[in-house]
């Protein structure tokens, strides 16, 4: 009697927790599940597909566990079989080598195709012209250079909506990972090397970006805003910045390299040519004497 009562209390408590969670979750922003870029969207859809396929096996496991533990519990009074020496059955075992195998074959095909389709180096087809942005992870801030527009920014990534953006990434710092969850998955930015990433944001808005890989004491402050605006607003921003912002000279860049934490966003005009390549060369070329320190 007491046991059944306790069971109801537990069940009720679980229900309350579930309801509270649903209410809470519907009120907050969950970037990975609310994509605003076509890559993040495809990744999200893939995630849902895989979860559904896996539930085909996982849910029966939970069901089976509950059923078996209930039915074959020593204390359970119902009539049940007891076969202490039953230890193998070809067909039964064959079945559960087969079920996960079939499932994994299906998942493998999906994985193989998706990995090719969503390779971060794949250009995104679009009627709009692709914009190139160079990203340098510094101690501890992000530098974005727009070579074609001759502007640059710190911790603020301006992007035009519905336009593919082609990122080239490197670091003048320990390994970092460049991640804007609502727009696309992440990729490492490493010193002396260059990685690439394509993003297409299909909704305007301001999204959060992070470094996902620990890079020293200022790591938590490597947060930036990705501001997706209309094409005209973007053009306006670029031309104003080019006119008004201070120039990103080599001297100013060498100053930026120095470690600093929680850096406010800033815009620059006329970035010195080759900052990105010199930053890579610095680590890769013997006897490097370039201007970038």
């Amino acid at each position: 009697m007491l046991r059944t009562k306790r069971r109801w209390v537990v069940l009720l408590a679980l229900l309350l927790v579930l309801m509270a969670s649903v209410i809470y979750l519907s009120s907050v922003n969950i970037p990975v599940l609310e994509p605003k870029g076509i890559i993040a969207d495809k990744e999200f859809r893939l995630l849902v597909t895989v979860v559904l396929i896996m539930s085909v096996v996982a849910l029966p496991v939970f069901g089976l566990l509950a059923y078996i533990v209930w039915k074959y519990n020593e204390k359970n009074q119902i009539r049940k079989k007891y076969s202490p020496d039953w230890e193998s059955n070809k067909y039964i075992e064959g079945t559960w080598w087969a079920i996960p195998t079939i499932l994994i074959v299906i998942l493998s095909i999906i994985t193989w195709n998706a990995t090719y389709a969503l390779n971060p180096y794949n250009p995104i087809p679009s009627k709009n012209k692709t914009l190139v942005v160079q990203v340098v992870a510094l101690d501890w801030k992000w530098l974005f250079i727009y070579p074609s527009l001759r502007v640059a920014s710190i911790n603020k990534l301006m992007m035009p909506v519905n336009t593919p953006v082609h990122f080239y990434l490197t670091a003048d710092a320990p390994m970092n990972s460049f991640w804007i969850p609502q727009l696309s998955g992440q990729i490492y930015a490493m010193p002396g090397m260059q990685t690439q990433l394509y993003i297409l944001a299909n909704q305007s808005g301001e999204y959060n970006g992070w470094s996902a890989n620990i890079s020293g004491i200022g790591f938590a402050g490597m947060m930036f805003k990705a501001d997706v605006v209309s094409a005209s607003q973007f053009r306006a921003w670029a031309s104003t910045t080019l006119l008004r912002a201070p120039a990103l000279t080599i001297a100013r860049y060498n100053n930026l390299i120095k470690p600093s934490t929680y850096v406010a966003s800033a815009f620059y005009a006329n970035p010195a040519p080759n900052i990105f390549n010199l930053t890579i060369d610095k680590y890769m070329m013997p006897n490097y004497h370039g201007a970038v320190q």
Binding site: V32, A40, K42, E43, F44, L46, L47, V50, V51, M54, L107, I110, T111, A114, T115, A117, L118, P120, S177, P181, S184, G185, Q186, I187, A212, N213
Partner: peptide
């Protein structure tokens, strides 16, 4: 298994 799918891992890695 979710994270074993590379494109999904791009969104979950190091999180």
């Amino acid at each position: 298994v979710l994270m074993a799918v590379p494109p999904i891992d791009f969104q979950l890695h190091n999180s």
